[in-house]
Structure formats: structure tokens, C-alpha cells
Design a protein around this nucleic acid. Structure first.
Lengths: 312, 312
DNA sequence: GCGCCATATACTCCGCCTGAGCAAAAGTCG
DNA sequence: CGACTTTTGCTCAGGCGGAGTATATGGCGC
């Protein structure tokens, strides 16, 4: 029988909820995963339409901003759960990953769907003060695994900002995940290959290669913050500068200087102050802002954001 | 009969030749296009392997650096030339675009393949002094077409750096091409839709949506220069700083300040000076440099490059 | 109303990066 | 040797970003 080609669509639908970045997950037989569906060339004119269609059917949540991430076509990646999408083990599955952003974490209609924090799957990516960061020295574990291999050590240094003049670059989430996969510090590495356990496992696993897709999405979103006004896709219509900053910090995964953030946001001209204020924090009331027209549209500049400058 | 799903692979193979950026093109019945082939799930384990396979067969050129660009799945995009890849008009074609870089523009074995300058297809993207830039005021033509529509004018301003504080951002090549397509300033717009001619047509057309894919590749490559050391994939083993600068300028499409370029490159630590020199320009001999280990690997920083600050 | 607290907002200061240009060095060519 | 070309070294000023201090404006307990 002929091996048919099947295209699957995966979505990382992200939002910010109670100051934490969350992603829409669906509970499947093998564990948690991203929403996905099969692309049917008969029914769907474009990928995006197909995506909106099945996400809305699966969760009753509408998609607003949508962006293509990457197309995964390697044989073997889908093996463990091929039957889920294709219904036929001999099919060859190619999957197209998408990133979608929502300004609200609305409750999904489906019981098996839920918003879950990024930090569940990537505890090491959240370096904000007071957050549950996995204090484990992952870079140290990796270096031990590298056993002096220079090329590997260089990759580790760049990915984790160890190294002499290196800095933690938040958008390298995928680099970090892939290193950890190779070093077998994540459960997927054991599931996909032999069952030899690594020293410690970090974060919760997802089915198939969904955690890899999520890492791709996180990195892409973080990078995009700096050159496109995507942060406003995660905010409501109106917000205080503190709320905006908390949204940015949630995505970036580290704290930033308050006064400088205000300065950079205000001079960028992406927001405008309204004449109303809110009093929600127990201190001085904050002015309410909204995004200007500049921050709309497919093109437009992003925010000038600082780099992480902590230790560890 | 069932509509089958077919995956096509397209490659933008770029190089720098005689100071100009070039792309490998293949002559087809309907005009020039990018090399492409059909992905066969039976034969190929990954997209990249398939890509290397058919490019080497079509042109006898090996691919070095390869990067996925985007997956195009909209129905209709492939209509005009569907039969080329599929051999069956009822198939649904999805195409995955790739960017590949070569340090040498080797002569392809196939007679129908040739290196052609980017500027053939995108004359407006080359703003270097003394180059054949199409002096036509494209932004003006676009604004005339926009007829006061604010949203459109804002897009034009951002794409072309017109607008008050806007600057020409070289990586927005796709934004510019898409606007021109919508305004029917490129031949493809007439071929794909009705035959109503626009005022002027710019650049040479390519078959299918290949010029769009090329625009995507140019934009991606230009952007990537700033944060990954990809420029060295386009250079030989050894080079002078002038040659390196000319390579960068060719890709960026504008001239940059010589002394500042030297400073930024040297402080970045991506190159190291050898103790040899060449005398090729009729002036003082230039030191030969080579890329350091830092510039290798999937990760690593890029060059700090200036922005275009010309007029027009 | 008054002191205290918490947060929002304003302003300052300084170092570094970057843009821009001058000038010297090291060759070729007539 | 002098004119010319290109490489290389250096300086200087403006601006942006990082970090901290100070002030404004509300609530709350008394």
C-alpha cells in the first residue's frame, strides 16, 4: 500500500494569565500536548483557515494573531503517536507549527483542554524574582555531560550565557531545550530513544515533539517582542504601564527596570495615555494606556527591551 | 478521484559573485524560477536530504548551509504551473521554501541553470552607490495607488522608510514586494489575476510565486546578518576586511562606513588576522583574515551593522 | 487631619556604543 | 621621487541605555 502524505497542524496558543505566560494544552492518551488537527486539502483553502477551524471546534476559542513557526518533516518524529492524527500507521506525517496569541485566557469549552504555564514545561526559562525557578544548575549538568568536548561546551556557553562575555539570551529557548534533549535531561529523550535514564529530568514532558514546538514558539515570541509590537496582542484594550511591563516580563522570563521601561515605551510612541486612572495596587493610581495605531498592522517596530543581566 | 497532497521543495541558493548577490535560477517553460523538486516520503527521510538530493542532481552543486524559510500552503498559488511538479492538475501542492548559502558561485552543470543577480528581480533593493538602481520612485507610485487609505499609507511608510521618523529597513524586502504586488507594480500580479496592467512594472518576473519566496529569503538573510554569523557562509576561507565588507554590502544592499565596519568586526571577535597580506587593489596591501571558531556552529552572535541612512 | 505606606511618575547622571571624519601608513605607478 | 590608492589607526561628539534618586498621589489607621 502506498504511503500517503499527511499534513498535521499544531498550534501554540499563548496568553498571559495572572502574570504568568500560559499555553493552551489538550490532554491526550499519552499525556499533555498542543492542539492539533489534520489538514484536509479538500476542505481548507489555507493552513490558517484550517487552524482556526479546528481550534475553534476543539476549544471554542477564537484565534486572533497567528504566525507560522516551522515545518517539521523528519521521519520518526511522529512515530510514537502517529495514529492519533492519521489513523494509519503507514502514513507519513509532516507537521506545520503555528504560534497564536490571545489577549485573554478564556476558559476552553472542551474539558480536556486547559491553559497551562510555560514554566510547567520549562521551569528554567523563568528567571523572575520570586518565581518557581528550577534552581538546578542545568548548565553545570550539561557541561558534565559534554566531558570537555569543545564544540559542545561552546554551544552550552552560548545557549546559557555561561562563558566569558556571554549573556543569557532569552530567545534561545530552543537551543537550550535541544541541548538538554541531547544530554537526556528531559524525559522525551528517553521515550524517543532507549530507556537509559539521565541524572535528572527537568520539566514536564509533552507528547510527540510538542515540547520542542513550544520551545520554538517561546523563542520566536521572545525575539519578536524586540522588533514587532506583538506584546499588544497579549494585552487587553487598556492597561497600565505596570501591567504592560508584567506582560513583557512574563514572556521574557526576567524582571526589567521599571523607570527605564516606562521611558522606552513612552518614547517609542506605541502607547498613548488616556485620561483615566485605576487604583488597584494600593499605591498611587496608575494612568491607563492603550496601544496607538502604530502598534497595529503586520509591520511596525517593537519595544526597546533590555537584556537579562543577572547571574546564574 | 481523490485530490492528493504533494509537497514541493523550493530553494533559494544564494552566493556573492563579483560583488553582487546572486541566486541560482533554473530556466523553465514559463520563465525563470527557483530550483525545486517534489518531496517523496518513500525516498527521503528529511526535507533537507531531499533538497540536497535534487539540487545536486539538477545542478551538481553541493549545498552547505541550509535553513527553512516558510511553508506556503494557500490554494491557488500553484495553479499556473501545477503540472510542473505534480504531473496532475488535481493535486494539492504545498511548498516548503528553503534558503541555502554558498561561498562560491560554481558553474552549474545543467545548461538551464544559471546564477542571476538579485537586482534582476529586485532592482529597488540595491541602493549601493554606482549600482543599477531603479531610480523610479516606487514609494510614490504606491502612495498614488493607496489614494489616501491610511492603513495602506502606513504600510508603505514602514516598508519603504518614508514617513516622518521612518528609516529604510533592508530586511523588509517581502513587505515591499507584497505591496507592489497588491498595487500591480510587478508582472506576477497581472499574470495571477486579471490582465489589467499597472502603470509601470518593476524587475523581472519569476514563475509561480518564486519571486515572493526570493523576497522572503532576501529579507531573512539580511535580518540574520545582524544576529548570526551567516555572512561567513558566503565568504571563502580567507578574505580581506574589504572583501568581507563588500559581501555584507552586497547582501544588505547599501554602503557602509569603512572604518566603523572594521572596528565592529574586529571587536566582535568573529575574525582573526593572519600574518599574510594581499596586494590586489593598487593601494596598501590588506591583511588577510579568517573566521574564528566563534563564527561557526548553529549558534553564535552576528555583526553589529549600521542602518541605512540615505535618502530616497 | 496627620503620619505612614505603597506605588506611580519625573528627573539626573554616567558610561558605552556608534556615526563621522581626520590622518598616517604602505604599497603601486609614472 | 611625487602623486595616487587603499588600508589602518585614532579622535570626538551625540545619543541611548543602565542605574539610581527624588517627588507625586493615592489609601489606611488613628
Amino acid at each position: 500500500m502506498e504511503r500517503r502524505l499527511v499534513i498535521g497542524l499544531n498550534v501554540v496558543l499563548a496568553a498571559v494569565k495572572d502574570g504568568d505566560p500560559v499555553v493552551l494544552c489538550v490532554k491526550r492518551p499519552g499525556g499533555w500536548g498542543l492542539p492539533f488537527g489534520r489538514f484536509d486539502p479538500e476542505d481548507h483553502r489555507t493552513f490558517e483557515l484550517a487552524l482556526r477551524d479546528f481550534v475553534e471546534r476543539q476549544t471554542a476559542l477564537p484565534l486572533e494573531y497567528v504566525e507560522q513557526l516551522y515545518t517539521f518533516g523528519d521521519r520518526g518524529r511522529e512515530a510514537p503517536r502517529a495514529s492519533l492524527v492519521s489513523g494509519d500507521e503507514t502514513d507519513r506525517i509532516v507537521s506545520v507549527g503555528y504560534l497564536a496569541l490571545s489577549s485573554e485566557a478564556l476558559t476552553p469549552s472542551l474539558e480536556s483542554a486547559a491553559w497551562r504555564r510555560w514554566s510547567t514545561f520549562f521551569p528554567w526559562e523563568d528567571r523572575r524574582e520570586g518565581k518557581v525557578r528550577s534552581c538546578a544548575d542545568i548548565a553545570g549538568e550539561l557541561r558534565q555531560w559534554a566531558k570537555g568536548d569543545e564544540a559542545l561546551e561552546s554551544r552550552i556557553d552560548i545557549a546559557f550565557g555561561t562563558g566569558d562575555d556571554g549573556a543569557w539570551e532569552e530567545e534561545r529557548a530552543l537551543d537550550r531545550y535541544e541541548l538538554m534533549y541531547e544530554a537526556r535531561l528531559v524525559a522525551e529523550a528517553h521515550r524517543d530513544r532507549d530507556g537509559v535514564e539521565g541524572p535528572v529530568l527537568h520539566g514536564e514532558a509533552m507528547i510527540s515533539d510538542h515540547r520542542r514546538i513550544l520551545a520554538t514558539a517561546i523563542g520566536r515570541l521572545r525575539g519578536k517582542l524586540r522588533y514587532r509590537p506583538v506584546i499588544f496582542k497579549l494585552m487587553g484594550e487598556e492597561f497600565t504601564l505596570r501591567e504592560l511591563q508584567e506582560g513583557v516580563e512574563a514572556v521574557l522570563g526576567f524582571d526589567i527596570h521599571k523607570q527605564n521601561f516606562r521611558r522606552s515605551v513612552e518614547t517609542a510612541g506605541l502607547v498613548e495615555k488616556t485620561d483615566t486612572t485605576v487604583q488597584a495596587t494600593g499605591g498611587r493610581p496608575a494612568a491607563i494606556y492603550r496601544a496607538t495605531g502604530l502598534s497595529d498592522g503586520p509591520t511596525a517596530a517593537g519595544l526597546a527591551l533590555p537584556r537579562y543581566r543577572g547571574t546564574l
